[in-house]
């Protein structure tokens, strides 16, 4: 597969990146390229200019900021997977990152790219949604913080505007227990359904691949709030959700999987 013709420039700084992206309406950032390049090869994305942010090493970090952890957008999945800080403070994120694709994908793909791409089938966005993370973006009109719940809008659609750069992801501490269930057929596959469950005060449950964007299970969360048992809450997991059908799973099977996996995840929380 051969992409259509495009120009390529390297961003030297965040400001430089913002300037370059503004220079061309059809321009796109490229980080790890592991979501964008496949689309370009199928000619489903045809940017005229690629602004490579892969060299912005300042945006690759994992920091302890007291009540939350801050992860730079350019941090690769493998760094999230192996970070000692995360393994101590937020092991869930390391675990979820370890399930993304295969080692090659994890060495190229970035957490910022995964979040900015906004694919409902991706692992990290749903985990961040359950963790009540927020995204920091900078653009021509300055810096803003967007809660995960408002960030993921629809199919490959996020709250970012095309000239905004995602720079950081903030994840609150205080997770007392968690579970992540990725259901797939082969080790390196995308999730057919994934469930992220987090206990941080209340219990939050988010789904991978149950819709066009990562989703919170309001049915399950409501049930738990009103004192339902795990079985009862899991039974309500897919309430109001109409998951897609594909070769791996019909909508009906996805609903079934969501319930089973939610039950198993909640059982692990305790």
């Amino acid at each position: 597969m051969y992409p259509s013709k495009f120009d390529y420039v390297r961003a030297l700084s965040v400001d430089d990146a913002l300037e370059k992206i503004a220079s061309d309406e059809e321009a796109k950032f490229i980080a790890g390229g592991h979501s964008l390049v496949p689309l370009m090869k199928f000619r489903l994305a045809t940017p005229s200019l690629l602004v490579d942010i892969g060299g912005l090493h300042d945006l690759s970090y994992i920091k302890d900021e007291g009540d939350h952890l801050a992860i730079g957008a350019l941090t690769r999945h493998t760094e999230v997977e192996h970070s000692q800080l995360l393994q101590a403070e937020l092991p869930m994120l390391s675990y979820v990152a370890s399930l993304v694709g295969d080692p090659q994908v994890r060495h190229r793909g970035t957490i910022g790219g995964s979040v900015a791409h906004g694919d409902g089938a991706s692992d990290l966005p749903a985990a961040l949604l359950a963790l009540d993370a927020s995204m920091i973006a900078v653009g021509p009109s300055g810096r803003r913080e967007i809660p995960a719940k408002e960030f993921f809008k629809g199919f490959l659609e996020t709250a970012l505007s095309p000239d905004e750069l995602l720079v950081e992801i903030k994840v609150p501490k205080g997770v007392s227990s968690w579970s992540y269930k990725k259901f797939n057929r082969r080790a390196q596959d995308w999730a057919i359904v994934g469930v992220a469950a987090v206990k941080n005060g209340s219990t939050k449950v988010a789904f991978v691949n149950m819709g066009s964007s990562p989703l919170r299970s309001t049915g399950c969360e409501d049930a738990l709030r009103s004192g339902a048992t795990i079985e009862e809450a899991a039974e309500r997991a897919a309430e109001g959700i109409e998951p897609p059908s594909d070769l791996n799973a019909s909508s009906e099977f996805r609903v079934h999987l969501a319930k089973v996996l939610t039950r198993r995840a909640l059982e692990e929380l305790s």
């Binding site: 057929r185 082969r186 080790a187 390196q188 596959d189 070769l247």
Partner: peptide, 23 residues
């Protein structure tokens, strides 16, 4: 596999799930 109109449904290695050592 094909759909009833003869469109291939597994025309790349993301959809045509061949096995790996991990399985």
């Amino acid at each position: 596999s094909y759909d009833p109109d003869g469109n291939p449904q597994t025309g790349n290695l993301a959809d045509y799930t061949f096995i790996s050592a991990a399985e």
